[in-house]
Amino acid sequence: MTRLLRLYPQLLRTGFAEAVAYRAEFLIWMFSTNMPLVMLAIWAAAARSGPVGGYSQEGFAAYYLAALLVRLMTGAWVVWEMTMEIRQGTLALRLLRPIHPLLQWSADNLAAIPMRGVVAIPVVAILLYVARGQLSHDWFSWALLCPALLGAWLLYFLVQAIIGTLALRFESAASLFDAWLGFSNILSGYLIPLDLFPRAVRELALVLPFRFQLSFPVELMLGRWSRAEALELLAAQWAYVALFLVSTRVAWRSGLRHYAAYGG
């Protein structure tokens, strides 16, 4: 454990250096996250003639800018890295290192957050300028935002890790993640605020883990929950994190037994 505490900051530093080295590409990846703005366009047009389901034009702006912010700050790409390394056989090299590959990848993904912050700052500025009246006034919501964002990132990272682990057995694990992403776009509130869905869909979305990835932190920023409700939701989010963590461990162990390094 103490060894890990010494190692991890070093891994973070290496990951950060890498993100800085590929900064041009990195920024372009960030800029290609524009879906919330595309969705904002249609809803803003729809709300020209009056509020839609409790959202004014300003309300939509606040929601989608917050969604963009959460998506920018909680990105992960480990599933593509895993499927590529497994196919090319370079995973074997990682396994030889005296640290768990998933820890290395998590450091790489986390270390990019300062770079993500650079892109996120203008989004925050626009959010504060356009729709500051829509944001939460309670400091408690903002205090919970930190663990909520960390939980959201962990959920995203761990789902990718679980599906990436499946690549040890199946060829098309990346396609599986693509399908998961399709459902997640709808059910996490990324494309449409969950409270605008018909009742049946909304109730389904509220129990599935997707909402904790995006909708929950966004709602915290918009001050939708009382303190007690927010705490309850945070607990639910972290329960999902714990569940995913255990699943990752199980999937990794059993997957590794199937792994025959190609070309090795």
């Binding site: 590409e25 990846w29 290609s32 996250t33 524009n34 879906m35 595309v38 366009a41 047009a45």
Partner: peptide, 18 residues
Amino acid sequence: RVDNLLYLFQSVFDVARW
């Protein structure tokens, strides 16, 4: 260095749905 510029265009193209 900017070899993923094409992806950026792909995502901008999403605007054309409206």
